[in-house]
C-alpha cells in the first residue's frame, strides 16, 4: 500500500547501494550468542577478501567474548543459506551484496 500524500511521494532510499560506491554494508550475527546484543554492521569493500573480512569482525568485536577462543571452526550462513566461503575469494565473488547478513556459529 503506498503512502497517502498530496504529491508523488517517492524518494531515493537514503542508504541505497550506490551511495556507498565500491563498498557495501554487511551485517554479522553470531547465532545462539546473545552476549552480543544485536548483529553488527560493517562498511567494507566489495573486493575485500573473505579472510580479511573475518579477521576484521573477529579481531575487533567477536574475539571479545571469552568463549570465542574455544571455538575451533565456524559454520557460515549467508542470510539463512548455509555457505562455505573460501578465504581468498572476495565478498562480491561469494555473492554478498549491499546489506547482506552473514551468520555464524561454532561448527
Amino acid at each position: 500500500m503506498p503512502v497517502k500524500a498530496l504529491y508523488n511521494y517517492k524518494f531515493p532510499p537514503r542508504d541505497r547501494a550506490e551511495v556507498f560506491g565500491d563498498d557495501i554494508l554487511v551485517y554479522a550475527y553470531w547465532i545462539d550468542n546473545p552476549f552480543f546484543c544485536s548483529a553488527s554492521a560493517w562498511r567494507v569493500p566489495k573486493n575485500m577478501k573473505w579472510k580479511d573480512f573475518v579477521a576484521q569482525i573477529f579481531g575487533q568485536l567477536y574475539g571479545l567474548d571469552p568463549d570465542f577462543k574455544k571455538v575451533k571452526s565456524w559454520k557460515w550462513y549467508h542470510f539463512d543459506q548455509e555457505f562455505n566461503p573460501s578465504d581468498e575469494k572476495t565478498l562480491a565473488e561469494l555473492g554478498l551484496r549491499h546489506k547482506s547478513i552473514v551468520k555464524f556459529k561454532p561448527a
Binding site: 546484543c37 544485536s38 548483529a39 553488527s40 554492521a41 560493517w42 575487533q60 568485536l61
Partner: peptide, 8 residues
C-alpha cells in the same frame, strides 16, 4: 565489556 563496533 563494551560492544566495540556498530550494531545493525
Amino acid at each position: 565489556f563494551y560492544y566495540i563496533g556498530l550494531p545493525q
